[in-house]
């Protein structure tokens, strides 16, 4: 008597497995469960930001020609609702860095950045380009003047050109964060903080106190913030629709 229900179970199991075999024979495949698509995409900017000149292969680089189309795809894809930018960079090409910053700031979807480890030099405008920026408590950002490399022909013209390049970076940072131009330039030209250069190494909490970065935090805070921004973004869209 006890054996009968077990037999039935065996039979149903047999039926299930045979239907699966049939499915595989008919269609040549079975449904494999897959991870759901993420509605938040991640852009990591690591090593040197590489621009017009290809750097020697020992440099770890982020190539801007790879990132720009990805940013366009993020803007276009309706399934992507938010973007998290991870930064651990030692700076790099000014034009490439500013191009990335302008792309990130002009994305209509919510964007949040996290500075992990380091976001030096040209990493600063990229970090402040997002809607909200975080810095890990141990992360640092080096703010220093732009230096000249290569041939100098006319000194006054070169100085003016360099000053203009520097102003592009300063203007972007001042316009996209809460730091004043005066304070940012003070940090940039401070003496005695760096061993081989003038400038300042700003660590975690200090970056928030200067108004450069919006908050101290990591992945948890960044994900909370981007989800919160996605929600408010959604309600705004609905209001516009009505």
């Amino acid at each position: 008597m006890n054996n009968e229900p077990e037999k039935k179970e065996d039979q149903t199991q047999d039926n299930n497995s045979s239907s699966l075999v049939q499915k595989i024979q008919q269609l040549g495949q079975s449904n494999v469960p897959q991870a759901p698509d993420s509605n938040i995409h991640v852009l990591s900017i690591i090593g040197q930001v590489e621009g017009h000149v290809q750097l020697p292969p020992q440099n770890k680089t982020t190539k801007y020609e790879h990132l720009l189309p990805q940013l366009v795809a993020i803007e276009q894809n309706p399934k992507i609702e938010g973007l998290v930018v991870l930064l651990n960079t030692v700076g790099g090409d000014v034009e490439a860095g500013l191009a990335l910053s302008e792309m990130i700031t002009s994305i209509s979807k919510p964007t949040v950045s996290i500075v992990l480890g380091g976001g030096h030099s040209i990493g600063v405008p990229i970090a402040v380009a997002t809607d909200y920026s975080f810095i890990a408590p141990t992360a640092t950002m080096t703010i220093h003047p732009i230096r000249l490399t290569g041939l100098v022909i006319g000194v006054p013209q070169t100085f003016e050109y360099l000053d203009e390049m520097q102003n592009r970076v300063v203007d972007f940072v001042v316009n996209h964060s809460n730091i004043t131009e005066e304070k940012f330039k003070d940090l940039m030209f401070a003496k005695g903080n760096l061993t081989r250069d003038i400038g300042t190494n700003v660590v975690g909490k200090a970056a928030v106190e200067y108004g450069l970065i919006d908050g101290v935090g990591g992945v948890k805070e960044a994900m909370q913030k981007v989800n919160e921004l996605i929600k408010t973004n959604g309600t705004q869209d609905q209001q516009v629709m009505q």
Binding site: Q48, V53, P56, I122, T149
Partner: peptide
């Protein structure tokens, strides 16, 4: 082209 980095140019362009 201007590279804005705290690293020295020798470190970046070392081959």
């Amino acid at each position: 082209m201007i590279i804005y980095t705290p690293l020295s140019m020798e470190d970046v362009f070392y081959n």
